[in-house]
Design a protein around this nucleic acid. Structure first.
Length: 952
RNA sequence: AGGCGCGUAGCUCAGUUGGUUAGAGCGCUACCUUGACAUGGUAGAGGUCGUUGGUUCGACUCCAAUCGCGCCUACCA
């Protein structure tokens, strides 16, 4: 085996181990195991590139998966990707654009073929990147939402829901994206506050008695007005209700109607223009008043659409006459706005224009302003599905972690609207519906089936619906469609319901809620028992990462490192707003003057785990990952030390490949050995508890502290005097070597779920010596606490040793004595136990505190002038002679005394309060008393010491 | 407007049923290249836990109010 380099180099091992694991089939679920454990990956978009959210999300999932696999559960992490309808179609359309083509030039079939082609070329991108993260996904069963099986599941669900009346077709107002030419769901619309205007327009009364003034943020929609509404309780307008207005520019007349629900007399002028075909609220008003003759008599019953699918003013239909003034035909909505405002102004009908902030709805993909638009669409009737989905959470069959997300879930589920599932794009699952020339709809698995079922002749003309389904429709089926549904497969049997869903809060509505509804409907069971909701990964200043801010970090750049110039190029290329490039470049140069160094996957994963406190976003700070890179190096070098001392040596491990496999040799464990073994047991429990409770930050912290502060800082140092002492017995050396290597081997298994690569690499070297055999650490049992190795006595004894050593180090540190300089030490007021301990651990004390000599003073011995440290009641003295500055020691003692004084005062005050003594539990009071006694003893001791020094 | 969450060391964050001298990492100061590791070691400085009240023998922790910040949902045309 190769020797270990002085510095840990992740690149040398990560790729190699991943390939080995995958080639050997370790990621597939085992055949045995009592319990099954399953996580469905939130399918990334095939178009996608790995971002920090994926990094975070997948680190958590892989940690859980590896933990359960090691625990012996039958463990599946289902791999796959999402066809991401709109996003993917846009990517390929952009490619066509570069060739000066549109998708319609190719035609539907060719265009879809082109997307498949593209998917074959670049679709593997995201899975390659997931592999870099070490994700132990079951790639052999990777699925794609558009593959044959999943398409079958989609069709099946659609048909069953249709047959039950839970899917229907209807003409409604929808969110229309005029750039993409498709309907989108409420969720795909993001509203943001933007600066705009409020136009006050005059509508003259038909009776010539003046006018009403309406205020609007969208003056161009006045072409489609069918009424002006006022509040019936509004004194100003009550008497005008029922009268008619001359709708300017159109030559049409519209009524004044009363609508209490929608009109707030306090807002604006108290008069609201009603444009039912281009505003959701107005549509609701129209529905309430559509039967009033002044409205129903209007063209289209008052529901007048004025736009094309591009949101430009449309031409009149043949039978409409001059419904929409020709003058505006073909104008884009904003162009029309300008013209209409100008025309109103010219006619003296524009009263004023105010600055006004308003919420502007934009499509999340296209960024285009969404237009409420009247179209035929397919809907899922959601209330009957939502009801059991709400109950599943109420009853605790599904648990949110953290718990408070259930409120968000309820809030949405209780106000849920029917789900518009049809999209006017080409890439996706085409709706299995056919129409005849009379407009009758037939839903079925295929055209042939439809003809058969409805007795339609082969030459009876049928036309298939052009639309495809919302991408989230197929995602909603993911937990069971990937396992083979509608077939009753073994995998479905074994792994549904899945164990936990790990996801960001941003897709609770898009995805989580819909999976719950569909799972309950078609599997008659919840899709998962727990939902672990994590926060967003932000930059180090807490800003959301985005291309336009230029603060995006790419996980692979953190793993591999990236030079400054390359990073700048990456951040500034392909920008929507190229004018920001300069600023982004400056900002990047300032923040990463030397680019980003390579940290390796394990350090990245450990960072994500350490930052994964529940329920809050994480700010990703480079300092943090650097620290954990150093941690990897620490673990690596601790191993170098261990290997150096155990390789080829007798470690007292039977069956180990050491060349010393004689029958059980005598073995002796020191208190230090017992201590570290005891600490290890407690750490095992802490880590297991933390992972089970989704506290990955606690798990990471427990591992970090044990490794660095206990194993490395203390145990490794304590092993040195034993291993390097020619006088130490072979049995003692054997015991120490055995402990060194076994604790390390345990620690590696404990750490493996979070840091798979370094632990595997090291384990391969360490395991044989520790007497553990196996092909991979991946399939080794996760360490469990061994009660018998918990040793409180050893922990107490080691605490004494540490206090002794720390006391001397502190004096040296504060008195400017070189740490390496051996000093003579005197012990005063030492009990029998103290003396015994000092004797027994003399080699530890000498080595770690660099003591020259240790001498016990009898009670009547004269104490020489010294610097003092306390270990319990014992005084550890370092004589001043030549070493120590008297004034400095006085200051040091005064400071220490001050601190103790404070402490004692506070405790005394507490104890002199009769209410405290009366009411507090006895144990608490006793604890305070003990503390006071201890503090007072220490205080006395230091005070006499101070007097002594002062009198010199 | 409603809902959720957050304000703890210069920075990033722990602190789970109220009882610690309020912790960690990074950063900072001083010293140290000792045979695992300078991606290191040793010692140290640094906090009236946003503010104000209340409950309690005792509050970072519970309650109320208030200020600041973030997010989500619904919005006034």
């Amino acid at each position: 085996m190769r020797s270990m380099e002085k510095t840990y180099d992740p690149h040398a091992i990560e790729q190699r181990w991943y390939q080995t694991w995958e080639a050997r089939g370790y990621f597939a679920p085992g055949q045995s195991g009592d319990a099954s454990y399953c996580i469905m990956i939130p399918p990334p978009n095939v178009t996608g590139n790995l971002h920090m959210g994926h990094g975070f999300n997948n680190t958590i999932m892989d940690t859980l998966i590896r933990y359960h696999r090691m625990k012996g559960d039958k463990t599946l992490w289902q791999a796959g990707a999402d066809h991401a309808g709109i996003a993917t179609q846009m990517v390929v359309e952009r490619q066509l654009e570069a060739e000066n083509k549109k998708r319609h030039d190719l035609g539907r079939e060719k265009f879809i073929e082109r997307i498949w082609e593209w998917k074959r070329e670049s679709g593997g991108n995201i899975s390659r990147q997931l592999r870099r993260l070490g994700s132990s996904l079951d790639w052999q069963h990777e699925r794609f939402t558009m593959d044959e099986g999943l398409s079958e599941a989609v069709k099946e669900v659609f048909i069953r829901l249709y047959e039950e009346g839970l899917i229907y077709r209807g003409k409604r107002l929808v969110n229309w994206d005029p750039k993409l030419h498709t309907a989108v769901s409420d969720l795909e619309v993001l509203s943001e506050e933007e600066n705009g205007h409020m136009w006050h327009m005059r509508y003259p009364l038909s009776n010539g008695q003046g006018h009403l003034t309406v205020a609007t943020t969208r003056p161009e929609t006045m072409l489609g007005d069918c009424a002006v509404a006022v509040n019936p309780g509004d004194e100003r307008y009550r008497h005008m209700i029922g009268e008619l207005l001359e709708l300017p520019l159109t030559g049409r007349r519209i009524p004044i109607i009363a609508d209490e629900e929608h009109v707030d007399p306090e807002f604006g002028t108290g008069c609201v223009k009603i444009t039912p075909a281009h505003d959701f609220n107005d549509y609701a008003v129209w529905q309430r008043h559509r039967d009033e003759v002044t409205i129903s008599a209007q063209a289209h019953g008052g529901l007048i659409n004025i736009f094309t699918i591009d949101a430009a003013v449309r031409e009149n239909e043949a039978d409409e006459g001059a419904l929409i003034p020709e003058r505006y035909s073909g104008m884009d909505r904003y162009e029309a706005r300008k013209q209409i405002v100008a025309d109103l102004q010219e006619q003296g009908l524009l009263e004023k224009i105010d600055e006004h902030k308003l919420m502007v709805p934009r499509g999340d993909r296209s960024g285009a302003v969404i237009e409420p638009f009247l179209t035929d669409q397919w809907y899922v009737k959601i209330a009957p599905l939502a009801k059991p989905a709400i109950e599943a959470v109420e009853s605790g069959r599904i648990r949110f972690v953290p718990d408070n997300w259930k409120n968000t879930y309820y809030e949405w589920m209780r106000n849920i609207q029917d789900w518009c599932i049809s999209r006017q794009i080409w890439w996706g699952h085409r709706i299995p519906a056919w129409y005849d020339e009379q407009g009758n709809v037939y839903v079925g698995r295929s055209e042939a089936e439809v003809r058969r079922q409805h007795n339609l002749a082969d030459d009876y003309p049928l036309r298939r619906d052009e639309d495809v389904l919302d991408t989230w429709f197929s995602s909603a089926l993911w937990p069971f469609s990937t396992l083979g549904w509608p077939e009753q497969t073994e995998r479905l049997q074994a792994f549904y319901p899945t164990s936990v869903l790990v996801t960001g809060f941003d897709i609770i509505f898009f995805w989580v809620a819909r999976m719950i509804m569909m799972g309950l409907k078609f599997m008659d069971d919840v899709p998962f028992h727990e939902v672990y909701v994590h926060g967003l990964v932000r930059d180090s200043h807490g800003e959301k990462m985005s291309k336009s801010k230029g603060n995006v970090l790419d996980p692979t750049d953190l793993i591999d490192g990236i030079e400054l110039e390359r990073l700048i190029e990456k951040r500034t290329s392909g920008m929507m707003q190229p004018q920001l490039a300069k600023k982004i470049e400056q900002q990047t140069r300032k923040e990463f003057p030397d680019g980003i160094p390579s940290f390796g996957t394990d350090a990245l994963r450990f960072t994500f785990a350490a930052l994964a406190a529940t329920g809050r976003d994480i700010k990703f700070d480079l300092g943090r990952i650097e620290g954990y890179r150093n941690f990897c190096n620490k673990l690596w070098n601790a191993t170098r030390y261990v290997m150096m001392n155990v390789e080829g040596q007798d470690c007292g491990v039977s069956g180990a490949k050491t060349g010393h496999s004689e029958p059980p040799a005598k073995l002796e464990r020191s208190v230090a050995d017992h201590w570290i073994l005891s600490r290890l047991q407690k750490t095992k429990q802490a880590v297991a508890d933390a992972i089970e409770g989704y506290r990955f930050d606690h798990a990471a912290q427990a591992i970090y502290e044990f490794t660095w502060n206990e194993y490395c800082d203390w145990y490794l140092e304590l092993s040195k005097p034993v291993l390097n002492d020619d006088n130490a017995s072979q049995a003692a050396k054997r015991g120490t070597r055995r402990t060194l290597v076994r604790v390390l081997e345990n620690l590696l298994r404990l750490t493996h779920p979070i840091m798979p690569f370094i632990t595997e690499e090291i384990w391969q070297r360490v395991a044989p010596i520790a007497g553990v055999s196996g092909e991979t650490i991946m399939n080794q049992p996760f360490p469990t606490q061994r009660e018998s190795l918990i040793n409180e006595a050893a922990e107490i004894e080691m605490a004494w040793v540490m206090r002794f050593i720390l006391g001397i180090r502190k004096i040296k540190g504060e008195m400017n004595i070189a740490p390496g300089k051996p000093v003579p030490v005197l012990l005063a007021n030492a009990s029998d136990n103290d003396q015994a301990l000092a004797e027994r651990h003399r080699h530890f004390l000498d080595f770690l505190a660099r003591t020259e000599s240790i001498e016990v003073l009898a009670a009547d011995d004269q104490e020489p002038e010294s610097a003092t440290a306390l270990v319990g009641e014992m005084k550890v003295l370092i004589p001043l002679a030549g070493l120590i500055d008297k004034e400095a020691e006085i200051k040091r003692l005064e400071k220490e005394i001050g601190r103790l004084r404070n402490d004692a005062d506070r405790t005394e005050k507490k104890l002199s309060n009769p209410k405290f003594v009366d009411k507090a539990p006895e144990a608490v009071v006793q604890k305070e008393r003990d503390k006071l006694a201890e503090t007072q003893k220490a205080l006395e001791s230091l005070q006499t010491q101070l007097v002594k020094i002062q009198n010199l």
